[in-house]
Amino acid sequence: MYYGYRCYNSEDKPIGWLYTHNSDTEIVWTDTKLNWCKKWKTQKGAVNSFDHFNSRWKFKSEGGYLKIEVMPEFEEPESAASRKQKLLEEWGDDNIPEATTTFKFELIKGLPEEHGTYLFLLENGSIKQGYFSSFPYPNHEEVIRITNCEDEYFYYEKCVGWLKKVE
Rank of each mutant, 00 (worst) to 15 (best):
M1C: 12
Y2M: 07
Y3D: 07
G4V: 08
Y5C: 03
Y5D: 03
Y8D: 01
Y8P: 01
N9F: 07
I15V: 15
G16C: 06
H21E: 14
N22W: 13
S23K: 14
D24T: 04
E26D: 14
V28N: 15
T32W: 13
T32P: 09
K33A: 14
L34Q: 07
K38T: 10
K39Q: 11
K41D: 12
G45P: 03
A46W: 02
N48C: 11
F50M: 08
H52E: 13
H52D: 14
H52V: 13
W57Y: 12
F59S: 14
K60H: 15
S61I: 10
S61N: 11
E62Y: 14
G63Y: 00
G64E: 06
Y65L: 05
L66D: 05
I68Y: 01
E69D: 06
V70W: 03
V70T: 10
P77Q: 07
E78K: 15
S79M: 11
A80M: 09
A81F: 08
R83A: 12
K84Q: 05
L87G: 02
L88R: 13
E89L: 15
E90I: 03
W91Y: 10
N95W: 12
E98M: 09
A99L: 11
T100F: 02
T102C: 08
K104I: 08
L107Y: 00
L107P: 01
L107I: 01
L111V: 02
E114T: 09
H115E: 15
T117Y: 04
Y118G: 03
L119D: 05
L119E: 09
L119G: 01
I127R: 01
G130A: 03
Y131V: 12
Y131N: 07
S133I: 04
S134T: 09
F135P: 07
P136R: 11
Y137K: 13
Y137R: 10
E142R: 02
R145L: 15
T147F: 10
T147L: 07
N148A: 05
E150T: 03
F154I: 11
Y155P: 04
E157M: 13
C159Q: 01
C159M: 01
C159L: 00
V160Q: 00
G161A: 02
L163Q: 01
L163N: 02
K165L: 07
E167S: 00
